[in-house]
Simulated assay, not measured.
Amino acid sequence: METDMFENFKCKVNKNISKVIVGKEDKIDKIIVAFICSGHVLLEDVPGVGKTKLAKSMAKSMNCSFSRIQFTPDLLPSDLTGIYYYNQKTQEFEFKEGPLLKQFILADEINRATPRTQSALLECMAERQVTIEGNTIKLSRPFFVIATQNPVEQFGTFPLPEAQLDRFFIKLSMGYPNSNEEIEMMNRYVDSDPFDSIEEVVSIEEIEYVQNNYDKVFVSKDIKEYILNIILKTRTHNDVELGCSPRATLNLMKASQANAAINGRDYVIPEDVKEMSVPVLSHRLILKSEISISKNLSEKIIEDILNSIKAPLEEV
């Protein structure tokens, strides 16, 4: 495995996106980790912090097809997957593909669609295929979904069930830029939109390499036990009704491997696990009802668990 390939991939993509998105390099790195692991991202944030720009910039950097879907209560599953319609000229049924048959999908305000439509998207995320009138169509690779939801305005929304939240590889919040970053953002956008100058920086061969080889990163027995201890602690925590699933265990290991690779290592260290634990695990916790209204409590619980468990010594 060539760790230089992963480092170069991360640096080129992050640098390109950072021309448009100011001061979010660490968040971009985590999204790149999810992409390498063929996972999907849930962005929970207020409007206007650059979620759409980020998704479009990432797709353009990789020369991948892109579609943005605005989720609304009247959106139907067929609006996502496509339909067969009768062409009177040819007197044959033809397939009109939906936006899900692109490679990069931005599912904007996913919690505004009905559970039936949400399920159609999440099925595509899990199975990498759509079935329409008995015909199965494989989705393009890479296939990557960034879904967003507004944590503030909940009127008229359909919250994602816990089982569906578990399908997302990581959950992030972009957050507001600081004062210096916002000044820099205004400077960049004063004359033109920097997105217009974004060009492809990685090839399909590079994408296939990183997605097919990140799992060759070595994970020691001690690191595996460390990951398991974190997971087990979520299942016995006093404030948690239901802890992380075995899927979360595997996802945390994969995320740690990919994070090690983009940082130039062919082995996982405890810092990789710590760095990826909150985005991979926090949205998978089901909190007890009396304390679940506390904001960002899930993240704090994961941080407390990390502080309470002794990390193994770094091994090369």
Rank of each mutant, 00 (worst) to 15 (best):
H237F: 05
F169N: 09
D304T: 13
V240C: 10
V202G: 09
D45K: 02
A126G: 09
A147E: 11
L121W: 12
I207W: 03
Y226N: 04
L172Y: 07
E92Q: 14
L287R: 05
V41G: 09
S197Q: 02
V240I: 15
A113S: 15
V219N: 06
G23R: 14
D193E: 08
P270M: 10
I170E: 05
S277Y: 12
Y85F: 12
I28H: 04
E97Y: 01
D222N: 13
Q164C: 02
K60R: 12
Y176K: 04
V273Q: 13
V190L: 15
N212P: 02
L313E: 15
Q164N: 10
D215V: 00
K51D: 12
Y267W: 14
R116Q: 09
E303P: 03
S294D: 13
F35A: 00
T131R: 01
V130T: 13
E241L: 09
T81D: 01
S256K: 03
D191R: 10
R235C: 09
I17Y: 08
A113K: 02
Q164W: 05
L281S: 05
S67Q: 13
L43Q: 08
E314H: 00
I223K: 10
D45V: 08
A126Y: 05
D45T: 03
Y209K: 07
A261P: 11
I230D: 14
Q149L: 05
M253Q: 14
Y84W: 07
D239A: 05
N213W: 02
L313T: 07
L313Y: 04
A55C: 13
K295P: 00
F144G: 05
I231F: 06
T90M: 01
N307M: 07
T114W: 02
E7P: 00
V41S: 13
S282R: 15
V33G: 04
T249A: 11
G48I: 15
P177S: 12
E271Y: 07
Y226K: 14
M62C: 15
R128Y: 15
I31P: 04
E2P: 08
N212R: 11
L101I: 14
S67A: 09
T90S: 15
I183N: 00
K19Q: 14
D215W: 04
R188L: 08
R68E: 06
M1I: 14
E162H: 02
Y214S: 03
R128L: 09
L285Y: 04
T236H: 01
K89A: 06
I17G: 04
E181V: 14
K288Q: 07
K60W: 03
A147I: 01
I31Q: 13
Q257H: 11
P142L: 08
G156M: 05
K233F: 04
S119R: 03
F155Q: 11
S78Y: 13
S277I: 14
K224I: 10
P161C: 06
D45Q: 07
I137A: 03
R116E: 06
V219T: 14
D239L: 15
S308Y: 12
H237G: 00
I204Q: 09
D108L: 10
H283T: 06
L54D: 13
I69K: 09
T136L: 09
M186K: 15
F218I: 15
N111V: 10
E123W: 12
F71K: 01
S119P: 04
V219G: 01
G50F: 07
T249V: 06
I207L: 13
S308L: 11
E2C: 04
C244W: 14
N229H: 06
N8V: 10
P77L: 02
R188I: 02
L42N: 12
S18D: 10
K274M: 07
V217D: 04
F6K: 00
